[in-house]
Amino acid sequence: MTEPTQPLFEVFVRAKRGLSHVHVGSVHAPDATMAVRNARDLYTRRQEGVSIWVVEASDITASSPDEKDSFFDPAGDKVYRHPTFYTVPEDVEYL
């Protein structure tokens, strides 16, 4: 018989100060306290990090691939949001 699964936690590691936490993978642990420790032993044994977040995977709400069109495509034509959209004289500095 398959025994019940320990909760799955997603792991985010800050590689060094000044950088964001980045998703690196997941660990199983009975609880969040042990999850941080398990993540430390698995994902930072080569000095890959200075800070760890764990989030129980079931607590994450994600956008769905089915929603991709309505979520992300509408941003595609808002080219004026990007600085490269604007034409400025070449001899103007600091712009």
């Binding site: 660990v27 199983h28 642990a29 042990m34 420790r37 398990n38 032993d41 698995l42 044994r45």
Partner: peptide
């Protein structure tokens, strides 16, 4: 008792 603990003991 679990792979995570293999990691910890080794460390």
């Amino acid at each position: 008792p679990m792979l995570e603990e293999d990691m910890a003991m080794a460390n």
